[in-house]
Design a binder for these strands. Structure first.
Lengths: 194, 194, 194, 194
DNA sequence: AATGAATGAGTTTTCATTCAT
DNA sequence: TATGAATGAAAACTCATTCAT
């Protein structure tokens, strides 16, 4: 029966409501009652699906992370020049963020926050940055990327991505402006030049 | 009486305790009672010095911001090459972060957080990044910095600084390793190259 | 189908699970959900068989009481000396308690508890102690039992039984030690001596 | 200021209210809100004085136990016949129960209940029955008490006391009837006769 | 200025019970 | 008969804030 209403079952209604409220009011600033209300379910229903408020947050984090990873994982990167591959990746990540502003904002808030257990955060970083690490290594062997300490470069990539998406999230009207888009990639890529 | 003991009066004891607790448990995760306890004062005392918990947070934010700005403002930048000036500035900022890990972590958590009223955050950004803006302008006229949109570059500078300090805060043993220090500046500076 | 498997139908599975959980966690401390889980049925099933949680408790109480009464009622008491009859009865009651520790513990907890409606409790006492009352009367006429107020003696018998079973339930290894068994009867019987 | 109103400070008002409500509705059946209301304080006040509802129960238990022990401990037992000493003790205990029906009923409910941690219960038993143990030992050496296993006798004494007080609590009009009072002691003492 | 007992609205969570399947 | 997702009232407990001392 529920299948009729587009898959928006109570569980995902709760996740959606939580995503928006956590973004606008923070984790502790959002009451479970308000999440349930926004999701259009009873308070008990929330706890039927998620053992605790923390568990809800973690599920949300994992869901968003997985969606993002899947979006990038589905990409077909052409053989050839590393810079072209990196550009495709960068724009794909940027476009995902622009297309999913709520999820991106959630990431901005929680990917570095104390609210998420350290292990979860590190796992997420690993999953996403692991791939970047391989690219950097290749680039260094090809001589197109500076030979700087890898962990520092990874943290830098993460920071660049966060600041670029922050920029576009705050100015949605520039999201499709090619000057700014190109500039964001240039900053990212040039930083690693030898 | 208290004035004798080097300024460790109850007010600053409260600020110090709040700094550490907000860092480790977040704003909402920290109760005023626990701050008072950690500060070694009665709960009522906290409210003698700060009208509300929010006011305490804002005072803390402004205090930390001012300290940081003062540290950089006191710097004597030599005439000459812009890159040299930028490097001095970068290392000064890095060293302040390393010397004040609690304050820097506080900044990491709250400079982008919903907990701090937007106006306060923007004001802080202005104060710190305004100066950088002038430097970038100069660099562009001299042809040593790429002519990319300024707001994007500022956001990028902020992001670079946050990721660099995050890196060194997580690895205090590298704080005085010159390879890593130089590398962090290289990433920052190279990004803006034409 | 289930009728084949020796009466272990869902209804009695629920009663069995409730017995153990009420014993270990008390009535209010045990949730209907946990009873259903322990019984291996769905939460809804519990309410098919028992209108409310209270009704389940009362059914359990009556079931246990009936089993106990039946066990003693089936006894064939020999004619002759009252003390011999009393001893047979005492040991039978003791043995029932030892053979059914869960049910006995349930009795310990609920035969005096507020959770069970007063009328039910009194009814149960009546059923069990009524018989004892007759014996005491006989004994008094024969001059082998002291002529003390009957209600006090009945309460005393009940108390003696409870403390004796408590003793053996806490020390199962003594359940078949004849010294202790005899001693328990001696305390019980001697108390009523003229 | 509070000293004026007879020492009924908020903390003891809460203890008094809890005593009555736990008696009539059981531990789990009594909400902390109702205790606070009955005590005439705010809900927060209850938790200011007692960390948890369990802690309140334990404090109450210890308080009542201590009062009882003090009442008996203050007794001056005359030298001489053991039975006379026992009688004085028995009546003192009985009178305390009659004079403090709420506290005694509380004891009836909780001295054997799962709600009170085992260690606390055992400690309480030790404190009260330890003294009885010594008396029984003496009596056995003098040949006036049967040589039955001590633990069984102690459990029996406890049971006798509980049933006697239950009897008088249910029938306050008999509390000063000397026939019943004497009978209760006779049952208690005779039980242990050789 | 400093204290800490007191407050009560608000929080997370539990749970007996219902009902569509 | 059996299921288990859904409910919402009620529970224990927290906490920013006040105020008499």
């Amino acid at each position: 029966m529920n299948k009729i209403n587009g898959g928006a079952d109570k569980r995902s209604q709760i996740l959606n409501a939580a995503l928006k409220l956590f973004n606008s009011q923070g984790f502790h600033g959002t009451s479970t009652a308000s999440i349930a209300k926004a999701a259009g379910v009873a308070t008990g229903t929330l706890f039927h699906h998620f053992a605790t408020k923390e568990a809800l947050l973690e599920t949300l984090f994992l869901t968003v992370k997985t969606e993002f990873a899947d979006a990038l994982g589905a990409l077909k990167l052409p053989d050839g020049e590393l810079q072209r591959q990196a550009k495709i990746l960068w724009f794909a990540a940027l476009d995902w963020a622009i297309a999913n502003p709520d999820k991106q904002q959630f990431f901005q808030q929680f990917s570095l926050s104390v609210e998420i257990p350290l292990t979860l955060r590190e796992e997420a970083m690993q999953g996403i940055l692991g791939f970047i690490g391989t690219m950097i290594n290749q680039g260094q062997q090809q001589g197109v990327i500076a030979r700087l300490p890898l962990p520092l470069m990874l943290e830098n990539c993460h920071g660049q991505y966060l600041s670029a998406t922050r920029f576009f999230l705050d100015r949605p009207e520039l999201a499709s402006d090619s000057t700014h888009r190109e500039a964001s990639f240039q900053l990212f890529w040039t930083a690693m030049r030898p």
